[in-house]
Simulated scan of single mutants.
Amino acid sequence: MMMKQFKTLVIAALMIVGASQAAQAQAKTAHVDVADLMSKMPAMLDAQKQLEKLSTTYDTEYKTMVEEYQNKLKKYEQEASTVTDAVNETRSKEVQDMQKRIVDYRDNAQKELQQKEADIVKPIMERVKASIQKVGKAKGYQYILNSEGLLLADGPNITADVKKDLGF
């Protein structure tokens, strides 16, 4: 998911080189390594820690639920021959309900984690985009490309300048 967001940032943050070769030849271009910026940016590192903590919380709760389910299932299987059919039927329904709650919890936890990631990362990406634009304009560049995917990067690399602008 993080790579998709990097690509989205790149698309949203960087201007694409003009269509004609003549325009490219006259345009002043530079490149920036967005992946490097994002991976080393203190705000992004903090965001990753927050997301890891939340993920660990969800994982712990999920494991607890699964353990309770497995223990109950084992107990009910051992006692199945010693209780009435009505009790076994009730227990079977209870186990199915537990299964559903576990699956629902897992699905909701994944959705919440993805939403939290989007909420945390979006302002960071917007900040990076604004900084790239600011540095690019200050240095007189018409086009700034992402270093990732470039086959030739002869122009100036402004990654260090953007890091400085972002304060790290």
Rank of each mutant, 00 (worst) to 15 (best):
T60N: 14
V162D: 06
N157P: 01
T82E: 09
S92V: 00
Q78P: 06
Q99H: 09
Q21Y: 08
L166I: 00
Y141Q: 05
A138N: 10
K72E: 11
E52K: 13
Q70N: 15
Q99C: 07
Y62C: 07
A47P: 07
K53E: 09
V103H: 03
Q26N: 14
A43N: 03
N88S: 14
Q133I: 11
Y105L: 01
D85Q: 13
D104V: 04
I158A: 13
S131N: 08
I16Q: 14
A19D: 12
Q21N: 12
K63W: 06
I120M: 14
M98E: 13
K40I: 02
T90L: 12
K164T: 09
V103L: 08
K28M: 09
Y141A: 10
Q24D: 03
L14R: 00
K49L: 05
K111W: 05
V87P: 01
G167P: 00
N88H: 12
M65E: 07
V32P: 15
S55L: 03
M65R: 13
G136I: 00
G18C: 02
M15H: 07
N157C: 12
K164P: 06
A109Q: 02
T64Y: 05
V87H: 09
G140T: 04
K28L: 03
I158D: 04
E67V: 00
V135A: 08
E68D: 15
A19T: 08
Q96D: 15
K93V: 08
M38R: 00
P156R: 11
A86I: 09
S81E: 04
V103I: 12
Y105I: 02
A12T: 01
T8L: 11
K7Y: 08
E89K: 14
